[in-house]
């Protein structure tokens, strides 16, 4: 949602009319996007549920158990990142330095989550859970992997927001739109954790 950055041509009136509306257009656009993303993940998770409930034995024989405890810890880290971003949003209008610090902390915790998961994946592969070893492996890497991809994109967007804020270019609506996306990534994870890991 970067149309406000258009340098060369004048902004469409459509964009300028944003001010007097209840919801900023970038936020509204992001909310719609997130809603369809929710349906996308609902499709993945319901597919997993159907296949799992149709299986004779679960987990499939010879497959390792998923790392429930470690991931619970990692889940807490991700949730904390979401809280930090919330605090950063609140500090945005009052204290830019504090906002910037909170934001970078949120980004750091988010990155920690992704890296921790990568390490977990390496261990699982080592124990014989791969994309093709069973439907558990297929769904696990598909669902968790696509979530991780979302997390990486969201982290990149937050870094961009952070850089723009340091240069003083950041519009409130942009920050809000990226925050909506990160809240989505954070809020989705506990559901995936409950459905896929447990």
């Amino acid at each position: 949602m970067t149309d406000l950055e258009q340098g060369q041509s004048p902004l469409p009136m459509a964009a300028q009319r944003r001010g007097d509306r209840a919801v900023d257009s970038r936020v509204l656009g992001m909310l719609i996007f997130v809603a369809s993303e929710t349906m996308f993940f609902a499709g993945l998770v319901s597919g997993f549920t159907i296949v799992k409930s149709g299986a004779m034995v679960w987990p499939p024989p010879g497959q390792p158990r998923l790392p429930i405890e470690e991931t619970a810890f990692n889940t807490a880290a991700l949730l904390a990142s979401g809280v930090l971003l919330f605090l950063a949003r609140r500090a945005f209008s009052r204290d830019r330095t504090r906002c910037s610090q909170l934001l970078i902390a949120a980004i750091g915790l988010g990155a920690f989550f992704v890296i921790f998961q990568g390490v977990e994946w390496l261990q699982l592969i080592h124990f014989g859970l791969t994309l093709t070893s069973s439907t558990l492996g297929s769904f696990f890497y598909l669902i968790v992997g696509i979530h991780a991809l979302h997390a990486v994109i969201a982290i990149a967007l937050m870094l961009r927001i952070w850089l723009r804020m340091r240069r003083g270019w950041l519009a409130e609506g942009q920050f809000a739109a990226v925050a909506v996306f990160w809240y989505f990534v954070v809020g989705l994870w506990p559901i995936l954790y409950l459905r896929v890991y447990l």
Binding site: M1, T2, D3, Q6, P12, M13, A14, A15, R17, R18, S25, G29
Partner: peptide, 10 residues
Amino acid sequence: GCDDMVFPRI
């Protein structure tokens, strides 16, 4: 009654 879409580049 407006001059373009909200996100013309998208």
